[in-house]
């Protein structure tokens, strides 16, 4: 079941085109990522979906309404970049206040516990660290028990440990049946969390696929590097169908190829009693896919 459907969204600010033509749909229960370089139009896209901006053209359907419908505000939780709180408000007060906004709020005690914020309940917002503010922001977005949560750059500014904790939390939220729309520019985050990813560049969707699907588009070229224990002739390996190229750098060998490259190479070497020491295998990553997809002309 489709819960968010964006069709031919376009938005410009004066002369600047922020979003040229963006279409995608999000299914219930999935974690959908919007990935793109800075200034690609990610934030404008989610702001339109959150009903904070009116698109110049195109349509956005969310659940059974259209973006901006007041009824959606109880069903969609939003965590934005640059949405702060009053410095002198404590964490607890913020949660209690925001709980009164929703007809059926979640238990904030449970939420802050999951987010590791319980020791900070009496702390004022202004005294929280960046990561703590971010986690409070996520808690507030989930406070209304939303069916959909939109999280914009949720781990920006977090240290690596806090980032991993947040990822675990996000997976936990999905397990509760919440559909998640995630904006990010972290490859690792998108790869770890998202079921599907829309790559946006210069205001357009340049690819929409699963993380694995995107990686495949970058080609399945692989590189093996190793130091052979015994010298061998190039022909030993270049004859293999999986091997495209063999290079030597001093005593190190680099082999570029595809398919079941590693298995093919190791089998031949083993047959001749050659040990491949210091072996590394490099495969195309989402990083490569991303760079390929968003490379400037």
């Amino acid at each position: 079941m489709t819960v968010i459907e964006v069709k031919n969204l376009a938005k410009r600010y004066g002369e600047t085109v922020a979003v040229r033509d963006v279409s995608f749909s999000v299914e219930r229960g999935e974690i959908f990522g919007i990935l793109g370089p800075n200034g690609a139009g990610k934030t404008t896209t989610v702001e339109c979906i959150a009903g904070l901006r009116t698109p110049d053209s195109g349509s956005i359907t969310i659940l059974d309404g259209s973006a901006g419908d007041p009824a959606l505000r109880t069903r969609v939780g939003v965590q934005l970049q640059e949405g702060e709180l009053q410095d002198k408000l404590t964490v607890r007060e913020a949660l209690e206040l925001y709980s009164t906004f929703y007809p059926d709020p979640a238990d904030w005690r449970k939420l802050v516990d999951d987010l590791g914020l319980t020791p900070k309940l009496k702390t004022r917002y202004g005294k929280l660290s960046g990561g703590q503010k971010q986690r409070l922001s996520i808690a507030l977005a989930l406070l209304g028990n939303p069916e959909i949560a939109i999280l914009d750059e949720l781990t920006t500014g977090l240290d690596p440990q806090a980032r991993r904790d947040t990822w675990d939390l996000i997976s936990g939220i999905r397990d509760r049946g919440v559909t998640l729309l995630l904006v990010t520019h972290f490859m690792e985050e998108a790869e770890r969390l998202c079921d599907r990813i829309a790559v946006i560049d210069k205001g357009e969707v340049v690819a929409l696929d699963t993380p694995a699907g995107l990686v495949q588009r970058a080609g399945d070229e692989q590189r093996i590097r190793f130091r052979p224990s015994l010298p061998f002739a190039d022909e030993l390996l270049t004859g293999l169908p999986e091997v495209k190229e063999l290079r030597r750098q001093g005593e190190r060998v680099e082999i570029i190829g595809s398919g079941n490259l590693l298995h093919a190479v190791i089998s031949v070497l083993a047959r001749d009693g050659i040990v491949a020491a210091e072996l590394t295998l490099e495969q195309a990553s989402l990083d490569d896919a991303f760079v390929n997809l968003t490379r400037g002309e």
């Binding site: 959150a50 009903g51 904070l52 007041p70 505000r73 109880t74 969609v76 939780g77 939003v78 934005l80 640059e82 949405g83 702060e84 709180l85 009053q86 925001y98 906004f101 929703y102 007809p103 507030l140 977005a141 209304g144």
Partner: peptide, 16 residues
């Protein structure tokens, strides 16, 4: 300040 720091903006995403 409420505008500058996005406090109003955050509120705009809630039912309030």
């Amino acid at each position: 300040t409420y505008r500058e720091r996005g406090i109003l903006r955050r509120l705009a995403t809630t039912p309030v």
